[in-house]
């Protein structure tokens, strides 16, 4: 899939990027704003960086193994216990009726603050075309909006 992500750190510059995603070990961040920002690429869980818009890549490091996603982690269970201000509605997005889930929970994991999330889901539960995350911590706030397209034929660069 391919996402267009807009992230605003309040009081700072807005950043925009395309996020190309095959799975958790294979993805690429293509920076749009700031245009000079480096791109990053993960291939088979190895992280690379490019300072020339993806023309060449330098290996940064091997990343930690991706944990299986079949059970909720302890942090997720702890966060779930703090969920509040939930709202469930439906909404028309570009002519498609979607389920909309919204709520807030504590960040935890050694950090003080809260996360407000809003997610737009297809009614068959198979797809999330839009999501919003609003982080609120002492002295800083940021909002991230992700618009997601299906890209079944997506390919990524494979550095030598």
């Amino acid at each position: 899939m391919k996402s267009f992500i807009t992230q605003e750190v309040y009081g700072a510059q807005v950043s925009k990027n395309f996020y190309h995603y095959i799975d958790k070990e294979n993805w690429m961040t293509e920076m749009v704003e700031p245009a000079a920002a480096p791109w990053s690429l993960a291939r088979n869980n190895v992280l690379y960086i490019s300072n020339d818009k993806g023309t060449s890549w330098q290996k940064v490091r091997e990343m930690d193994p991706v944990e299986p996603a079949d059970t909720a982690s302890q942090i997720q269970q702890d966060r779930a216990a703090t969920v509040r201000n939930t709202n469930c509605t439906t909404e028309d997005l570009n002519g498609e009726m979607l389920e909309v889930l919204q709520g807030e929970y504590d960040m935890l994991n050694g950090m003080e603050g809260s996360i407000e999330e809003k997610m737009w889901l297809s009614l068959d539960k198979s797809w999330v075309p839009k999501s919003m995350m609003h982080l609120k911590m002492a002295g800083t706030e940021s909002k991230t909006i992700q618009l997601i397209e299906k890209m079944p034929e997506l390919t990524l660069p494979m550095p030598e």
Binding site: K24, A69, A72, S73, W127, V128, Q146, I148
Partner: peptide, 9 residues
Amino acid sequence: VKNADMRAL
């Protein structure tokens, strides 16, 4: 986390 792949966040 079961839905993390859908949104890639």
